[in-house]
Every structure is written in C-alpha cells, then in structure tokens.
Design a protein around this nucleic acid. Structure first.
Lengths: 125, 125
DNA sequence: CAGAATCCAGCACGATACTG
DNA sequence: CAGTATCGTGCTGGATTCTG
C-alpha cells in the first residue's frame, strides 16, 4: 500500500483554518463578517468613509471601544488595511484589502435576501 | 404643503422589521442566519436530514438544548417548518420554507468566499 | 484625532438531569 | 423520540475615564 504524500504549507494553512473555524466555510465566513458593526463598517469603508472619526459620525450608536475592537478584528482577519500617518494630530486611514473587496458579491446577496425576505416580505397572495 | 399619505400594512411591517434589525438588511440577515449552529442545521435540513435525532447525530457537538433553541429560532424567523406527527413515539419533521429555500444562492456565495479567502487563501505570488 | 484601560451587565452557550 | 428544566460560566458588548 502506498503512502499518500502531502506536501505544502498551503495544506497546513487549511488545516489550521479548518480547525479554527470548525471546518465549515459558511460558518467561518459568518463568524468573520458577523460582528455587530462589521457590515456597516465595511460598507462605509468601501465608499471611502475611511477615517476613525468619520466612521464614528456615521455610526453614533457604536462606541469608540467597539469601533476600535471591530476595526482591529477586521484588520486581523485581513479584510481591511490600517495606514498610520506620523503626524500631529494623528491620522489613520482605513481601506479594504483585496479579500475585503471580494466580499462585494456576497454582500449583494445578503442585502438582496434581507430586503426580499425580511424588510419587505411579500404577502402570500 | 401637502401631507404625505402612507397607507399599508406592508409599510407597518417594514417599519417593524427595520426597527427590529437596526435598519440594515445585511445586518438583519446576518443576525438571522448567524446562530452558532444555524448554517449547519439549514444545510442538513436542505439535504433531507429532517429529524431531530438525525440532526443530532450529524452534529454531535451541538447539545440537545442548543439544537432545540436554534430550531425554534429558525422556525420563528420563518426559515423552517416544524411538522409534528401525533404518534408514539413522537415524530417531528423539519423542512425548509420558501424563505429558507431562498437562502441557497446566498449560502453559495458565503461558501465560495469562505473557501477562496479563508480555507484556501491564494498565496500572493 | 484616534485610540487605551478598566469595570460591569446580560446573554449566548454548555453540562447535566428529567419527561410525555 | 424529541424534547424540557435548571444551573452555571465565559464572552460580547456598554459606560466611563484617561492619553500621546
């Protein structure tokens, strides 16, 4: 019987990610984008509302603390970039990564289903 | 100046749902399908694993309590039907509603993004 | 301006035992 | 078979204060 040869860091990466997210790509995705303010944050960044203060003004119900933690998680998960300018007063710009940009069709489907099935459910007539 | 006339239960319904889910259809959708076991449950029901015990065997890490609460929430949100047969021993069958079936393309996108961006992220080479 | 630190409440979720 | 009932805990997220 032949041994199976597996050889790639990519495989290690997969194993790591599968363990981390329970093996289901759907659950994994939901976990990453499912934070309370993440969809809104991603949306605003995608339309160039890209500074901390601006984001706060768009989402007054999101505290600074929450804004910070959600931004850090999005950064850690590779959905956004954080660029710090060494100025006084400090200036930070957030942008979507490629991975973040890749979310667009997914968000389109999320939005579509939400509108058609929750916000404006058709009467069964 | 003319008063705007708004008249429809549909509008009331929308207002209700918008308040309930914060007005963002994306967040609303994520809230509904984002339960810890809901994607798996919906998936298994969609492939006709439609009884409580069967679902439990497919997801041994999901306790009875969690299975019950998640199923009840899915039912309340109109994604699944629960049909009870008056027999001994009791028999219950779960099926997707139309609204639940409508999730298919969305789940397709969730799965696709998860695989391409988390489980098997491309090296930048 | 863009956070960090600390404290705290609520609830999601888990473990276990019991039931029509 | 398909659940309840009860108890317990850890994490998510809120309020407030402080800082380079």
């Amino acid at each position: 019987m032949k041994k199976i040869e597996i050889n790639s860091e990519r495989f290690d990466n997969m194993v790591e990610n599968i363990k981390k997210y329970g093996g289901c790509p759907v659950s994994a995705t939901l976990k990453i984008i499912g934070g309370k303010w993440k969809p809104l944050i991603l949306y605003f960044i995608s339309v160039d509302v890209n500074r901390f203060g601006q984001l706060q003004r768009m989402m007054p119900d999101c505290s600074k603390r929450m804004m910070t933690t959600q931004l850090r998680e999005l950064e850690k998960d590779g959905l956004i970039n954080r660029k710090v300018f060494a100025e006084v007063p400090p200036k930070v710009i957030y942008t979507l990564t490629i991975t973040g940009e890749n979310l667009r069709p997914l968000f389109g489907e999320l939005r579509k289903w939400g509108i058609e099935n929750i916000l404006e459910p058709k009467k069964k007539s």
